[in-house]
Design a binder for these strands. Structure first.
Lengths: 304, 304
DNA sequence: GCCACGGATGAAACTTACTTTCATGAGCCG
DNA sequence: CGGCTCATGAAAGTAAGTTTCATCCGTGGC
């Protein structure tokens, strides 16, 4: 097992912009200024010369080049071209939806709904676009052949972890998730070769989750990280890194788009695992559905 | 500078490629060779350097520049960027997304990802579209002025319930959610006028949730139902009904799109509530974020 | 047939853009 | 408080793009 996680350097099929904003926190301050300009208006950036862009970002050309390299480009010209292409593709934002920004103070419910759903949907789409099928495949493979699967997450990511655990469990995989660190650590210590440990953290900096993942890895389990930031600490403890692409409206507003993005990844993995053995999975799903049938009341004649 | 050819300067409506091939015959032989290369593969041309392209067209750089001017560009860099943009736009649509349907048996991960995310994103968008702002407003109002809020859900909807509870709690509302029916029933029995009870059930037929909601209502609490089916049993016990619009890929495949749709509604209500008292909500969010700060590891900066 | 003329063309000079190197200085760890 | 690492921009160096200009070739007039 390779020790360095696959950040899929050259693989950012979905969006370069998405890729860049994911990398943003791992960039140096000066590079971040450049990145922000680029993300804010890719088309405009593509039009600028390197000197021009450097000046606009209040830095030197050298830093712009470094930025190019940091996001996986060969040099500035390549970045320019990619940006132009990217910008052309995303001619979409037609209406004045508050993209990525905060909710304006005087907003009414209709505005709030439009903004939230737009950002949520976008997070889902962009996450899917930049998800690397090859890495997913390997993770699915690991899960399918795992003796035991453990999923870790804290706070909002904890619900996602539980959701994943529940899904895996429903199709007959032996999966666990934990409400607290101690239990998780204890359990992780009992993992071994062939087991799978999945850590979920939007920021990639949740020490509890990192710690548990580290523990799991030291016991020989295959480790997977699910985070929004491909260069965050958690990725160093993971054999496989899966990234989401959520730009939270406001960082502290409680996870909103981020957990939807995480759940989308969970869905993909889940279906991927289920698809490996359709018959068995289907049977399991039917059995479990049957089990709760008596907890449903009849005529839901839905004709929505 | 009077001698340059007068071609429709900067405005070539249809497409740059179309434009170029249109005036191809009016170009000099050497320029035509360049033009043909460009038209044949714009994306490739965009990647080439001027020297490279000149060589490929068996001509000199000077001619390439002349060609740029002939088609109305300022210079080679501009042409490059326009070409990249053009190329990006024209290969977009042919995307074999598996819409709405089930995942085909032989599907690979890339297909799965496309299908899932498409349906997930759609569920979010469609839910937002049909969500009634007026009803949301009333629910928000009820939550804001509630003495206590309880959220019920079973299975996958249980996670959504917990998520909502956690969010409300974070902004200082007194909210609860429950892992089992008994506790929930007990708690619901203690609700009274001015309290709010929210029941979440995708199918709208989960008897446990219905039962608890009924209990809450009988105690005078305001009841809210969140379901995908506006005519389902749960709606009969609710003062306010909020609906999601998820079409699950496969009914029994475990809730996927449905919970994303539910979470979107949760997000909207949450932001709606938070917006009612920005200052207080913001302060609460900051305090809670600070509380977990020591559980985050710092410097995510790294270079590959 | 010879000679002006003009457009097309590429070589080379030139300019600008891009890239690398290196010295500096800030922050961090022991 | 040294001795590190790392981020950064100035400046040197290289490559890309642009201009200039001499040449070439075909044309048409004499």
């Amino acid at each position: 097992m390779a020790k360095s996680p696959k950040i899929s350097a050259s693989h950012e099929p979905g969006g370069l912009i998405v890729h860049i904003s994911g990398l943003l926190p791992s960039l140096s301050p000066a590079e971040q200024r450049v990145a922000r300009l680029v993300v804010a208006d890719p088309a405009d950036a593509a039009r600028r010369t390197i000197t021009d862009l450097a000046t606009a970002a209040e830095t030197s050309e050298a830093t712009v080049i470094r930025f190019c390299r940091s996001v996986g480009m060969d040099g500035y010209p390549q970045l320019r071209i990619r940006l132009a292409a990217e910008a052309a593709r995303r001619i979409e934002p037609p209406d004045a939806r508050v993209v990525g920004g905060d909710i304006p103070p005087g907003a009414d419910l209709a505005q709030i709904i439009a903004t939230i759903s737009f950002n949520d949907a976008r997070a889902v789409e962009e996450t899917a676009e930049q998800l690397d099928p090859a890495v997913c495949e390997q993770v699915v493979e690991a899960i399918v052949s795992a003796g035991r699967i453990e999923v870790y997450g804290a706070g909002a990511s904890g619900f996602v972890a539980s959701d994943f655990q529940q899904k895996l469990h429903r199709i007959g995989r032996i999966a666990f998730s934990f409400p607290d660190v101690h239990t998780a650590l204890t359990s992780a210590a009992l993992l071994g070769k062939g087991d799978v440990a999945i850590g979920i953290s939007h920021s990639g900096t949740t020490s509890d989750v990192i710690e548990v993942l580290e523990q799991a890895r030291s016991r020989g389990a295959v480790t997977v990280a699910l985070t929004n930031f491909p260069r965050s600490p958690i990725t160093e403890r993971a054999d496989f890194v899966l990234t989401t692409a959520a730009r939270e409206t406001t960082y502290r507003s409680g996870a909103m788009a981020s957990r939807l993005a995480q759940l989308t990844v969970v869905d993909c993995l889940f279906v991927g695992v289920a698809a490996r053995n359709r018959a068995r999975a289907r049977r399991a799903l039917e059995v479990t559905a049957e089990a709760v049938r008596t907890h449903r009341v009849g005529g839901s004649r839905r004709r929505s």
